[in-house]
Design a protein around this nucleic acid. Structure first.
Length: 645
RNA sequence: GCUGGCGUAGCUCAGUGGUAGAGCAGCUGACUUGUAAUCAGCAGGUCGGGGGUUCAACUCCCUUCGCCAGCUCCA
C-alpha cells in the first residue's frame, strides 16, 4: 500500500497509508473531543473522508463556522428522521445548510402545524440523546435507486438519476434511518447540542413553480445552548429595528389596505427625511454634471411598444387606460421619456455625454406575495438617470457613476454591501464587440474603485451587462439598490443617433443607473440601518426644547426662535409635565438632542443639551450649541464628527 | 400567484359557542414638575369584509381582502 504525507496543525509532517480516514488521522493526534471534523487542503471533511494524496489537515472544532456547518447538516438529518418517524407518509427531498441554520424540504400533503414543530423537536431531542453515529456507506447507483424506490422516496431517486455518472453515491446512516447524502456530517447525532426549529414555509421542488409545493422547515443549531440563546436574542433585537415596525412607531409612513397594497403614504416626518435626501441628491448630481428632468406619469402605449417593454415587461405593467380612444400606459420605467428628450433634435458627438436624472415615480405590478414594507412595493420613486454617450466614453462614465455611488452610500453610513457584475446571457442584442467593450469597461471601473465583486456569469439583461449593488436588511436579506446597466437595445429601437467627427450617424450608448434604486427601498433600509435613530443631518426632528417650569417659557421661546432662524429642525415641549416624561418621549421618538431649560439655564441664557442615549452636555448658549452640531449637521462632514448615536 | 400562519380599541395584546377585556395612547380635571412613565375620572370596538351552521358565533364552516414567513419574481 502506498503512503501519503500529511501536514498537521503543529507543522509536523507525518506519513499515513493512502486512504486513511480523517477520523483515524485525528484519533492518532489525540486531540480533544471538541474536534468534529477537519479541513483537508482547506476543504471541509468529516471523519469518513479518505485522504488519497498528500495534504494539509487542519482539525475543525465544534463552534467554528465549518464545525457549525457539520452540526447543522446533521441537525437537518436528525429533523428528517424525526419527521419520518412521526409522519411515515412524508417523503424527504433535500436538506441543506444555509447561512444561519438549515432547512429540509418534505413532501407532505397535509402540511405541518406549529404544534407539529414542537413534537418534531421533542423527537429530535430523543434522537440526539441516543447519540447515534452517522455512518457513511458507499453504494452503487443501482443499489441506491433500488433502495429508495423500495422506500417510495421518489425525490431521492430523481436526484440520483440526475447525478453525474462518475459520482460516488453515498448514504449516511444513523441507526436504522438513512438518507442519500454527500456529507460531510458530524460523527454522531449527539453533536447537535442546541437547536431550534424556527418556521414552516412552502417551497417548490427544485425552485420551480411548475413543480409540486413542498413543506420546508427552517431551523438552526449550535454547539452549545448559549450560542443558540445569543442567536435567538439577536433575531429578536433585529426585529425591533424592522422598518415596518419603526416606521409605525416613529410615524414615518404607512401602507393601507384602503389605498392598496404596495402603495406608500409618506407621513410628515418620513417625507421630511425624503426631502432632505432629495435635496442632497439633486445638489450632488448637479455638481457632477447631471441635469434634472421631469417627465409624465403616463404616455401613449405605443411608446412602450417601441421600447419593447410591451413584449418583455408586460407582466409587470398595469393595464392601459383609454383616453379619447387612445391607449395610455402608466409608466413602469422612465427611460423612453429621456430618449425622447434626446431625439428632439440632432445631436453631435461634441454634445455627449448627456447625464439626465429624474426622481420619477413608476408603477409596476408585483405579485401579492412578494410585497414587503417599503422594500418591495408597487409604486416607487426611482433616482433614475440615463447617460447617453459614445462607446469610447463608457468606462469614464461608469467610473463616474461608481464614484458617485460609493460616495452616496458612504455619506448615508453604508460601508457594507455586495457588488455583482453580470455578464452576457445566452440571448442578447448588440454586437459581441460592444458587449466585450462594455463588460471590460464595467470591470475596469470596479477595479479602479477597488470594489470587491462577484461575477454573475450570463446574468446580465439581454440588452447589456450591468453592475448591481445590494444592501442587506435587518433580517439579512439582500436588496438591490444601486445599479449600472449598459444598454445596446433602446438606442437601436428608438433609432437614436449622433453625428460623429466623421460626419456620419452613429448610435449612442445608453447607460441606465440608479443609486438608491428607489427612495422607498432606500428609506426602508436606512430606517433599519439606524433603527430609526437617524444621524442629525437626516433626522426629521433634530432637537426639542423642554422646559422644566412655566416661568422659563418666554426664554425658551427666544431660544426656539434663534434655532429656527438657523434652520434647525426644532420642536417645543413646554407642557406642564415632569422632565422625566419629556426625556422619555424624546428618547422614544429618537430625537438627537433634547435641550433642557430650567431656571439655571434661563438665568444664564443657556440650554442644557441631552444627547439621544442619555449623555448630558454642559450648559451652553444657543450659538454654542449650533456651533457644536455644525459638523454633525453637514452631510459631507458628519462622519468625521465620529458619532451619531 | 403558490404553501403555511395571522387579522379583537389608535398601539401592544388577553378572551376555546352564552350578546367583548387590560395596559399604553386619547380626552377632562388635579398636580407646577431637573434627565426614560404624577394621579384620578371619562370615552373608545357592527372582533378585517361577506355568507353559512346554531336558540345563540370573536369563537365552528365557506368565501373574500389584507398582513407575516418562505418559494417564485424584481428597484
Amino acid at each position: 500500500m502506498s503512503e501519503i504525507q500529511l501536514k498537521l496543525p503543529d507543522g509536523e509532517i507525518k506519513t499515513f497509508p493512502k486512504g486513511t480516514t480523517v477520523g483515524a488521522i485525528l484519533k492518532s493526534l489525540e486531540i480533544g473531543d471538541s474536534i468534529i471534523g477537519a479541513k483537508v487542503n482547506g476543504k471541509l471533511a468529516d471523519f469518513w473522508f479518505e485522504v488519497e494524496s498528500d495534504a494539509t489537515v487542519e482539525p475543525v472544532t465544534q463552534n467554528s463556522p465549518p464545525g457549525l456547518h457539520l452540526i447543522r447538516h446533521t441537525a437537518a438529518h436528525v429533523m428528517a428522521e424525526a419527521v419520518q418517524d412521526l409522519f411515515p407518509e412524508v417523503k424527504v427531498t433535500i436538506g441543506p445548510v444555509i447561512e444561519n441554520g438549515f432547512y429540509y424540504d418534505f413532501d407532505f400533503s397535509s402540511g405541518f402545524t406549529p404544534e407539529d414543530l414542537e413534537k418534531i423537536e421533542a423527537k429530535m431531542r430523543e434522537i440526539i440523546k441516543e447519540n447515534k453515529p452517522l455512518v457513511r456507506k458507499k453504494v452503487s447507483r443501482g443499489d441506491a435507486i433500488r433502495t429508495f424506490e423500495r422506500e417510495g422516496e421518489t425525490y431521492k431517486v430523481e436526484i440520483i438519476n440526475d447525478l453525474p455518472p462518475e459520482e460516488q453515491i453515498t448514504i449516511y446512516e444513523q441507526g436504522d434511518w438513512h438518507d442519500l447524502c454527500r456529507g460531510p456530517h458530524a460523527p454522531s447525532t449527539g453533536f447537535v447540542k442546541a437547536f431550534k426549529l424556527l418556521s414552516i414555509a412552502g417551497a417548490y421542488w427544485r425552485g420551480s413553480e411548475n413543480n409540486p409545493m413542498l413543506q420546508r422547515i427552517y431551523g438552526t443549531a449550535f454547539s452549545n445552548k448559549k450560542d443558540l440563546e445569543d442567536y435567538l436574542t439577536k433575531l429578536e433585537e433585529a426585529k425591533k429595528r424592522d422598518h415596518r415596525r419603526v416606521g409605525k412607531e416613529l410615524d414615518l409612513f404607512s401602507i393601507q389596505e384602503e389605498i392598496g397594497p404596495g402603495l406608500v403614504l409618506w407621513h410628515p416626518k418620513g417625507a421630511k427625511v425624503r426631502r432632505i435626501i432629495e435635496d442632497f441628491w439633486r445638489s450632488e448630481h448637479e455638481r457632477r454634471g447631471y441635469d434634472i428632468l421631469f417627465t409624465p406619469h403616463v404616455a401613449k402605449l405605443d411608446l412602450w411598444r417601441t421600447s419593447g417593454h410591451l413584449d418583455f415587461y408586460r407582466e409587470n405593467m398595469y393595464s392601459p387606460m383609454d383616453v379619447e380612444n387612445a391607449d395610455y400606459q402608466i409608466k413602469p420605467m422612465t427611460c423612453p421619456f429621456h430618449i425622447m428628450v434626446y431625439k428632439i433634435k440632432i445631436r453631435s458627438y461634441r454634445d455627449l455625454p448627456f447625464r439626465w436624472a429624474e426622481i420619477g415615480t413608476v408603477y409596476r405590478y408585483e405579485r401579492s406575495g412578494v410585497l414587503h414594507g417599503l422594500l418591495r412595493v408597487r409604486g416607487f420613486s426611482q433616482d433614475d438617470a440615463h447617460i447617453f454617450c459614445r462607446p469610447d466614453q463608457i468606462e469614464q462614465e461608469v467610473l463616474g457613476v461608481l464614484d458617485l455611488t460609493v460616495f452616496f452610500l458612504k455619506t448615508f453610513g453604508f460601508d457594507d454591501y455586495e457588488v455583482y457584475l453580470s455578464t452576457r446571457p445566452e440571448k442578447f442584442v448588440g454586437s459581441e464587440e460592444n458587449w466585450e467593450r462594455a463588460t471590460v469597461a464595467l470591470e475596469d471601473a470596479l477595479k479602479a474603485k477597488g470594489l470587491n465583486y462577484e461575477v454573475d456569469e450570463g446574468g446580465g439583461a439581454f440588452y447589456g451587462p450591468k453592475i448591481d449593488l445590494k444592501i442587506k436588511d435587518v433580517l439579512g436579506r439582500a436588496w438591490q439598490c444601486s445599479t449600472v446597466q449598459v444598454d445596446f437595445n433602446l438606442p437601436e429601437r428608438f433609432d437614436m443617433n449622433f453625428v460623429g467627427d466623421d460626419n456620419k450617424r452613429h448610435t449612442p450608448i445608453m447607460i441606465h443607473r440608479a443609486i438608491f434604486g428607489s427612495f422607498e427601498r432606500f428609506f426602508g433600509i436606512l430606517i433599519e440601518h439606524y433603527g430609526g435613530a437617524f444621524p442629525l443631518w437626516l433626522s426629521p426632528v433634530q432637537s426639542r426644547i423642554a422646559t422644566i417650569g412655566e416661568e422659563q417659557i418666554p426664554f425658551a421661546e427666544s431660544i426656539y426662535g434663534i434655532l429656527k432662524e438657523n434652520n434647525l429642525r426644532v420642536e417645543k415641549d413646554f407642557r406642564n409635565e415632569k422632565l422625566g416624561l419629556k426625556v422619555r418621549e424624546a428618547q422614544l421618538e429618537k430625537i438627537p438632542y433634547l435641550l433642557v431649560i430650567g431656571n439655571k439655564e434661563a438665568e444664564t441664557g443657556t440650554v442644557a443639551p441631552r444627547k439621544l442615549g442619555g449623555k448630558n452636555l454642559p450648559s451652553m448658549t444657543a450659538e454654542e450649541f449650533l456651533n457644536l452640531i455644525e459638523k454633525e449637521n453637514d452631510p459631507h462632514k458628519w462622519r468625521e464628527a465620529g458619532q451619531y448615536s
